[in-house]
Design a protein around this nucleic acid. Structure first.
Length: 646
RNA sequence: GCUACUGUGGCUCAAUGGUAGAGCAGCUCAUUCGUAAUGAGCAGGUUGUCAGUUCGAUUCUGACCAGUAGCUCCA
């Protein structure tokens, strides 16, 4: 007999009982819903026998681990279907991801969207057959032999990686399909119910662009058809917030073939919002002790050679001129760092000058690869709230904290704070060509950053190989409507470039020392931030940011004079306000203002003109009744002054 | 850059190997109206660009340009 603790309750079972049987003993509902089990914290198949006292948990689809196994099993079913249709397929990896699963497969031809329904149909057959999924283990040489027989070259590579560890290699078999896999899995293909393949794309083997490009199939599955429908509807809903559609519709930006890729035109609405953001950021930074610089958009190649950009970032730069022919070659700046360093170098510095904080609303140019551009999120020319801070080692932590506090202040003001996550971006010691500096320097800089992050209780994930070429970064990440993550804000520690540029300060002991440099942005680059704001608010930005805050709607032509008085009064109070004097019905004017997400519509009819009131309609709450103009003015002023998120 | 897909008037979309239609937007006229679309009329396109196949291409093929998703890269 074994003693099994289930949610704190201890029960006795025959030794050898499986997790599935325990689930059944609790209830058929749980048995049917069970995906995997957890024995003493380790996630296992439901068929796993229990031979010693332990703690057991039954995990259903509702549990993240249950979901993972459910989706991972669906990936295997998809692989089996692909193998039926393409017998020569070689399989790479097929994990569960945040929303569903994918499998990377080497095929003799590229897949097209027409293939998806065929594969889906084959999957449904496999699910209907309800094939048992069984685990077995082999020694590494036997595992090799099995995969060699199946011509699974990618699996052989994976086996070779594990072989060194001396562990047995586990496989999962379902009918005619066997996959190298750590598991765990559901016990049968029939457990999977509603399936949908969502995309056919491609991905490099091992994520390296030097390797072969494999076909990647994405899909998702659920225990109920209704859940699948709900999920797909949610995805469609999210796409309606896409800034690349909404931003164009609402007149924020456009693009033009003649100007080129990644070079959006900010239309009046977009330009206005960015102006408001920039003024806000520059003022806030001034309050926090930052000094504004304005540095050139381009420089001779010599500057970039000194900074290391010429060696490490040249592919990303727009170079003007030909090194072979021209005596002087220039490049548009991809970063502001070396320019602001020259401001520091303008005179000799003492420790009394530090910390020295330079900010700049800085336009940058990066020659991104053609497939990478996306709306306003990824472009070739953008303007960033840039800043470089020179400080002593003793000041580093508090200054880093100051930069982070500023970034958090910005995120909270914009209402994005709840949506971000933190990534500690470190170097990859196995790829030294990407970085300058010594291992000691990297360990030191990363050690300092880790200490600061822990000290400040920042919950972060580690990103190996995500560092800048000169130092580690704290990246503040955010997801767009498609779930794709991008960096919104970054704060970096650099102890290398000061030395390269000969930046020094005279310390209290009279000795010359190199300052630490913090590279940082406070609100990110304005184009990207605007894009994420549009998606966050589905175009209905907080009122203080809206290009048009109030629209006055006179009911008929004879009220234009009265409407104009209201407009003048609001304009005098600093509001961005227009008047819709078109000869249209009020319903029509409201509809347009509503679609343009104008925060307030003020309807002026005979009654209002007579009583000196306005009939207020908010984009959010609809008709909120009439009130004296001054009352509305006070309400609107308050909303803007507090930068309210409505 | 790589894989797949897409490109028709300002926008959303239809149609076809024999040189294109609808709705919305625009303009004109009428209507002066109370909380998400008043009616009528007019105008607007060498079907992304350049080649090729063909008696004939916007439709088929290729290259290029641009867009979308993913990969790589990255703020």
């Amino acid at each position: 007999m074994v003693k099994v603790s289930l949610k704190g309750e201890v029960k006795e079972f025959e030794s050898g009982i499986t997790v599935a049987e325990i689930a059944k003993s609790i209830g058929m509902g749980l048995y049917k819903a069970a995906c995997v089990g957890k024995i003493d914290g380790k996630v296992v198949d439901l068929r796993t026998p229990i031979t010693a006292d332990c703690e057991v948990e039954i995990l259903t689809f509702e549990h993240p681990e249950g979901k993972k196994a459910y989706w991972h099993t669906t990936a295997h079913i998809m692989a089996q279907a692909v193998k039926h249709l393409f017998p020569n397929a070689a399989f790479a990896i097929g994990p569960a991801v945040e929303n569903g699963f994918y499998y990377d497969i080497d095929l003799d031809r590229s897949l097209t969207p027409e293939d998806l329904p065929k594969i889906e149909a084959e999957m449904k057959k496999i699910i209907k057959e309800n094939i048992p999924i069984e685990r077995f283990e082999l020694a590494s040489d036997e595992a090799r032999a099995l995969m060699e027989k199946e011509h699974q070259i990618y699996k052989l590579e994976l086996i070779d990686e594990h072989a060194g560890k001396g562990e047995k290699i586990s496989f999962y078999q379902q009918g005619d399909y066997t996959d190298l896999c750590a598991g765990p899995h559901l016990i049968s293909t029939g457990c999977v119910k509603a399936v949908k393949l969502t995309a056919n794309t491609a991905a490099y083997w091992r994520g390296d662009s030097k390797n072969k490009m494999l076909q990647r199939l994405y899909g998702i599955s659920f225990p109920k058809a209704s859940e699948l429908e709900e999920y797909l509807a949610k995805v469609e809903e999210a796409k309606k917030r896409d800034h690349n559609v909404l931003g164009r519709q609402l007149g924020y930006f456009t693009t033009c073939d003649l100007i080129g890729q990644g070079l959006p035109i900010l239309l009046p609405n977009g330009a206005r919002v960015i102006q408001i953001l920039q003024r806000f950021v520059e003022d806030e930074e001034q309050k926090r002790g930052w000094q504004l610089t304005k540095t050139p958009y381009m420089a001779k190649s010599d500057l970039y050679k000194l900074s290391g950009h010429w060696d490490h970032y040249k592919d990303g730069m727009f170079v003007l001129g030909d090194e072979e022919k021209d005596s002087e070659v220039f490049a548009l700046r991809p970063m502001t760092c070396p320019f602001q360093y020259q401001a520091y170098l303008n005179k000799n510095r003492s420790y009394r000058d530090l910390p020295l904080r330079y900010n700049e609303t800085s336009t940058l140019f990066r020659n991104e690869a053609s497939g990478e551009m996306h709306g306003l999120i990824r472009v070739r020319q953008f303007t960033i709230s840039e800043g470089h801070l020179m400080c002593t080692p003793e000041q580093l932590e508090s200054e880093f904290q100051g930069c982070l506090e500023l970034a958090i202040f910005m995120l909270k003001t914009l209402g994005l704070y709840e949506d971000v996550s933190y990534r500690f971006s470190m170097w990859d010691p196995n790829d030294r060509t990407k970085y300058i500096g010594t291992e000691e320097q990297w360990n030191e800089a990363q050690g300092i950053m880790r200490k600061i992050l822990n000290h400040l209780n920042i919950p972060f994930v580690e990103g190996i190989g995500e560092a800048a070429f000169y130092g580690p970064k704290l990246d503040i990440q955010i997801k767009n409507v498609f779930g794709k993550e991008d960096t919104l804000i970054t704060i970096q520690i650099d102890q290398m470039l000061a030395e390269k540029f000969g930046m020094e300060y005279v310390d209290a002991d009279g000795k010359k020392k190199n300052p630490y440099i913090i590279h940082r942005t406070s609100i990110g680059c304005y184009e990207r931030t605007l894009a994420l704001l549009i998606e966050k608010y589905a175009g209905a930005l907080p009122m203080w940011l809206m290009p048009e805050q109030i629209r006055v709607l006179p009911i008929s032509e004879r009220l234009h004079t009265d409407a104009d008085k209201v407009v003048k009064k609001l304009q005098a109070a600093g509001f961005r306000v227009t008047c819709d004097t078109r000869n249209e019905k009020i319903g029509y004017k409201i509809r347009e203002a509503q679609l343009q997400k104008i925060p307030y519509m003020l309807i002026i009819g005979d009654k209002e003109a007579q009583e000196n009131t306005v009939s207020v309609r908010s984009r959010k709450d609809g008709d909120i009744g009439s009130m004296p103009i001054d009352a509305f003015l006070a309400k609107a002023t308050e909303q803007v002054a507090t930068k309210a998120i409505d």
